[in-house]
């Protein structure tokens, strides 16, 4: 009897161990990106753009070319790369502080120009790298370093819903929100990320995948408890679903 490999590390993922905290969702999301790149056979022409935040070292974990951008500017950098090398597969990988706070202008306008790039947006409602400050996506009442009494809508506003906002624009072709709180949802997230890159490979428009994720360290919870907390608290505010699928990529797949 021989043994067949059912699951192992995708080729586009480098051998470097992740620096992320135990249980952090970034590792799985990185792997899903690498799997999509491998399945679409575009690893030799993919260029990633790393953000500022916990995933600042994303470039260490993939086996293809990378640019490391300034905080929030990844969509502008990706615009420059994609316009210069239109046959490349260009994606940004950004957190909620990077994309939904300091980089709001860059993401909205890259989306609105319909840049033919893919954006992977990891929303865990907190700044991780700097030690747990309030993010634009922090929930009402959620305690962070900079909202020690809980986020108060009257002074700090409400959680920004980026997918919904971007879906109001004409140009993006695919805007979806997924999570990886269970294996079933993880497989849906895998499909969404695949769809987003497939659209780019086909030369279509701007694709955006928001992944609602956990931050066990800064939430002060165990990883498994964090996924439960996410399900009960984040998903009511950030409902899963596809907000825009102009070309019907989900049906065609």
């Amino acid at each position: 009897m021989t043994m067949k490999k059912v699951f192992s590390r995708p080729a586009s993922l480098s051998k470097t161990p992740f620096h992320y905290c135990p249980g952090c969702d970034h590792g799985v999301i990185h792997r899903l990106v690498a799997e999509a790149i491998d399945e679409l056979e575009v690893g030799d022409r993919t260029i990633g753009v790393a953000p500022v935040g916990c995933s600042v070292f994303a470039y260490d974990y993939f086996n293809f070319d990378f640019n490391q951008a300034a905080h929030g500017r990844a969509p502008a950098v990706a615009t420059g790369i994609k316009r210069t090398r239109p046959d490349s597969i260009v994606f940004t990988y950004q957190g909620d502080g990077d994309l939904a706070a300091i980089g709001t202008a860059e993401i909205i306008h890259a989306a609105n120009r319909g840049e033919k790039i893919t954006v992977i947006f990891v929303n865990n409602a907190i700044y991780g790298m700097t030690g747990g400050q309030m993010a634009p996506t922090t929930l009402i009442g959620m305690k962070t370093q900079t909202s020690p009494y809980g986020r108060d809508a009257s002074t700090a506003g409400n959680p920004i819903k980026m997918s919904e906002m971007i879906a109001t624009l004409e140009s993006p072709v695919y805007v979806t929100r997924v999570t990886i709180n269970s294996v079933a949802n993880l497989m849906k997230a895998k499909k969404a990320i695949y769809n987003a890159f497939k659209l780019q490979k086909e030369g279509k428009g701007f694709s955006f995948v928001e992944v609602v994720a956990i931050c066990p360290t800064n939430w002060g919870k165990k990883p498994a408890d964090s996924h439960k907390w996410l399900t009960e608290n984040m998903l009511p505010v950030f409902p899963l679903g596809t907000f825009k699928d102009t070309l019907g990529v989900e049906k065609s797949a």
């Binding site: 640019n67 502008a76 950098v77 790369i81 860059e106």
Partner: peptide, 9 residues
């Protein structure tokens, strides 16, 4: 930052 991207490419 677009210049940074384009120049890096």
């Amino acid at each position: 930052n677009m210049v940074y991207g384009s120049g890096s490419a």
